[in-house]
Design a protein around this nucleic acid. Structure first.
Lengths: 232, 232
DNA sequence: GTATTTTTGTGCTATAAAACATATTTATAC
DNA sequence: GTATAAATATGTTTTATAGCACAAAAATAC
């Protein structure tokens, strides 16, 4: 069987804001955009750097993380195609507050900060779209703060698995979570050590809540997983 | 000495967005706004309720919190005059994701959700202002997630004290933090139990980093406090 | 002014989770 | 194909912090 060939979608099919652009803006952006590729584990942007462009994830999956005390890494969110990278720092006129790394081979459309800001300043519907996006992101970030600080290990890991399921969906078997993360990434997402992620994952498997095959995780009993996540 | 009389500033002096309004919008809002008062510890909005108005904090201080696992409360941010309440949920068209409570007597100007959205949709500069505000808030929320999950108790309390100092400033003596919180609030802000907040506060006082007189906290050695916060 | 509730303070115990140690398996390099 | 590195797995020890109990002080109610 030949390896499946990905046909890259054009920017107007990837960018969720395309419908609110004016005719002129569409014409302009059809040319005035860039294209970047990143291999697995490649760094897309780094915390502390000055942002130079809005990035639109066209293909692939990325993790967004921050370094905290003792150089411990915390994954603050995971992005999928159609979502944006780097726009928060551009809007706030700050340095990047997060590091973004490709979890699998990733293709990105880019729009320069200047062009991005220019459209934000001139197209009200476009501006409103990003306003909505930030409003959603803020609620999620606040919720994550509370979940990560108050839930116990089992609750945090259950929550992370559900977050991944909700974000990336399930494969054709309707059970396998649509992203394969290392135990270390799972740990950084759930605010625990790698050994505890491994242990807790094994416990969940023993309790027939999930099955684990390498990095493939099948959700067997979602109800139970939600209960564990909810109770903390 | 007679009790100091607060003269309430008019909305156009409180609202930080007033300068980007059009002449017509100013005329309109000069009448189409409401005024609310809340006593100490009164609930201004509740998690799960439908938001009905943008609130602009005119006088007073409020805490913004969420309930997590085991009904434990987490304060996610603290607001001061000029800052906004309830706009995130209106923009995202969601129920309130947070509860807001007055820490001291508080006066609030209100603008109905409909009027707020209408201006957002028509005045690009106004929309951009709130875009910026959310961009700042998101970075702070992400930073808080990492700090609260990774720092130890001393680091978390030191961080909370600095956050309060940076947000509310110092009194005339250039040492007393400009807001008086209960030990319980300090604990909910720093993600720890009340006893641990009390204990750690006492330790800081013993180490001559702060002095404590009831709820008044004087910062004696800010350098040391920043070091403790940074190291975690 | 006294009673009652709330807040603050302190010691002790229990426990969740990190830290550490060490295999074992899997992936990658040459 | 072998060597080396990285990821996964598991047992043991240590520790930070929650949980609990109770006392003292302060605030509030009557």
């Amino acid at each position: 069987m030949p390896k499946r060939q990905f046909i890259l979608k054009p920017i107007y099919e990837v960018a969720t804001f395309w419908d609110v652009l004016t005719h002129d803006e569409r014409n302009f952006l059809s040319n005035a955009h860039g294209l970047l590729h990143f291999g697995k584990n490649e760094v897309i942007q780094s915390e502390g750097e000055r942002p130079t462009q809005l990035m639109i994830l066209a293909e692939g999956k990325v993790k967004v993380s921050k370094i905290g005390a003792n150089n411990r890494l915390q994954i603050v969110r995971m992005l999928k195609p159609g979502e944006h990278i780097g726009f928060r720092a551009i809007i706030a006129n700050e340095l990047n507050s997060t590091t973004v790394v490709a979890v699998e081979p990733t293709t990105i459309y880019t729009i320069s900060s200047e062009n991005f800001i220019s459209i934000l300043r001139n197209n009200n519907a476009f501006c409103y779209r990003f306003l909505e996006e930030l409003a959603f992101d803020l609620a999620e970030s606040d919720a994550r703060t509370v979940n990560l600080t108050q839930k116990h290990i089992r609750g945090r890991l259950a929550e992370a698995l559900l977050l991944l399921k909700d974000n990336y969906g399930l494969e054709a078997d309707k059970a396998t979570i649509g992203i394969y993360l290392s135990r270390e990434d799972l740990a950084n997402l759930s605010n625990m050590t790698t050994s505890n992620a491994i242990r807790t994952l094994a416990n969940f498997a023993n309790e027939d809540i999930i099955t684990v095959d390498g990095r493939k995780i099948k959700i067997i009993d979602e109800e139970k997983l939600r209960r564990i996540s909810k109770l903390g």
